[in-house]
Amino acid sequence: MHKLGWWSVALLVCSTTSFAHENWVLARLPKSATNALSKAQICCGHDFPKSDILVAERLLAEMEVVGPGGATIPYKPTAEDKTWTTDIAFDKAGVWMVSFALKKPQESEPICRGRSLMVVGGQDDPLRYARKKGLEIVPGAVLSTLKPGDTLPVSILQNGTPIEGKIAVTPEKGSASFLSTGKDRPAQLKIPSAGAYLLTVSSKGKTFALTFTVAESTQGGTR
């Protein structure tokens, strides 16, 4: 009977993750030379990292890149098939944040925010992963040295304060799963394989999506 219950819960979880669609931004570093332009894509769909739906332009807001020095650079993407795409030059070593929001023009607050974390040149700093503004998912350890088999602590913050919640984890390779966080207990995300990861959370009608990439080698998300 207990086993039956677990099967039914697993079934429901699978069905939910199969059919819910997410919004995210994903930036990947070029494998080749430094100073090459990287592509960042604002996506929407059911099949991370592939985008199925082109989000309406009127909803796009707060599209900006935050560099290692804290400088904020706005970007303007163009529609390309089913994604909004832009080229970004990550020309300084350190932690970069590519973010966007979905906001209805008549509303004051976005309904969804997305962020992609990049570590360039191996100069990692977990303190720069959070902006302490609104709802966000924040990794609690360095991303640049992350490799398959490692465990990454992740927290949900609301205006910088940890809150309880459920994080949906969708890896590029592998199946989706859920993690629970507490106010004083981050969730432990086991990294099963290299590739991009999408972490999403919903709270009080707002959603947040975080993406990052785990490299095959120990130089995770870096160059």
Partner: peptide, 9 residues
Amino acid sequence: CLIAACYGH
């Protein structure tokens, strides 16, 4: 319930 979840979005 699975079927209901299909509609859930």
